[in-house]
Write a protein that binds this DNA or RNA. Structure first.
Lengths: 199, 199
DNA sequence: TAAATTAGCTTACAGTTGTAAGCTGAAATT
DNA sequence: AATTTCAGCTTACAACTGTAAGCTAATTTA
């Protein structure tokens, strides 16, 4: 048996265990090392062979969540390229993502306003990535000036994330309703941005 | 000595103790009953003479925070009446509020996406109040149709809260910058809503 | 093949938590 | 004046936490 491989596997099972514990009732700070170890199927003290801290594990989770988010963006772009409105397609893709990966999105959402400065900073970094990508995209497709495109992207991301937060607790019908309202609101922003650019 | 009065005083000191513990590193779920009791200057078990749970205390805190928020709104309206742009004045008032009552705002923000369904629901209720009031205000001052006014108000509240979250960690200069950007973004929404109403 | 490394284990400990049981003394009621 | 009520107390306990110390067995290296 390869030792490195086995170690990686255990590491993975720790990460997976942590994600599985992050349901609607638990946050990173309320998940204990022992609990993670229990679910991962290792002794509590073995945890330290893989992570210095529970916090180090937390940062790893945030990184993974951010990665998933960026993959989501790429997926949305592909869908847009193959037809459909930009806003509508993006919102639908996003809503699907948070339904299927609710624990991943919940992590980002919760730690975004959580108790650990390091986690908040890490989440903010991921959101910044999102902002930058959306700004570029907006600029290149609409020709808006950078400053305006940036403001628009930032507002949109905030609105989308806020609505996503609401959608996490919502029933399927309510989710659909939220998505429709969100699309209209994003159009408000897009149109308002265009008007600001013209003046 | 009046007994009822004394009990109310102790209750107050428990609430104040809890608020004082909710700094940038602590959330309701991470504050222990014993810790609150310690700061309030009572024995741990005396806590139960006032609240059934730590959760019951939490709901009380959310209520108080919501109250403070609505007082903020009234204050903003007064300021608007005595001159100054609606958006600009509101944002300035809001930013002052979260600077002066950062623990109160932090509570709402954190529990909004927190681990307790009851707390999330309670915060959502407070935000709904905010939404309703802003919708009414928008409808009566701009004459927009209810549906549009409602969408606009909701989007604005989400954007303001998101930016408020960012402002909590920010330096004074950054805060100013955030406020200016927020004002522009709110104008995007306002203008976009008007355009939607015209079409 | 012998020696070194190491992932995971068991045991152990001190610190914290929520809360049950029951006492006390002062305020309120009769 | 006698009785009841009750806010706050002390003591106690079982459950949980993070993590230190040190063993084991299997893989890796020499």
């Amino acid at each position: 048996m390869n030792r490195q491989l086995q170690k990686l596997r255990t590491r993975r099972s720790i990460i997976d265990a942590a994600f599985s514990l992050l349901d609607e009732q638990r946050s990173l700070s309320s998940v204990s090392l022992r609990e993670v170890a229990r679910v991962a199927g290792i002794a509590p003290t073995s945890f330290y062979r893989h992570f210095k801290d529970i916090d180090e594990l937390g940062l790893t989770l945030v990184d993974e969540a951010g990665l998933a988010l960026r993959q989501l963006m790429r997926q949305a772009r592909l869908r847009i390229a193959s037809g459909g409105g930009v806003i509508s397609t993006s919102v639908d893709t996003f809503m699907e993502f948070i339904s299927e990966n609710s624990n991943v999105f919940r992590l980002l959402l919760r730690e975004h306003t959580g108790t650990s400065l390091a986690f908040r900073a890490a989440v903010l970094r991921e959101i910044q990535h999102f902002n930058v990508e959306l700004t570029d995209y907006t600029k290149s497709t609409t020709g808006l000036p950078l400053f305006i495109a940036n403001l628009q992207a930032e507002a949109m991301v905030k609105l989308v994330f806020s609505t996503g937060a609401e959608a996490l607790d919502a029933s399927p019908e309510l989710k659909k309703n939220l998505a429709e309202r969100l699309k209209l609101q994003l159009r408000f922003i897009a149109n308002g941005a265009i008007k600001a650019a013209v003046n």
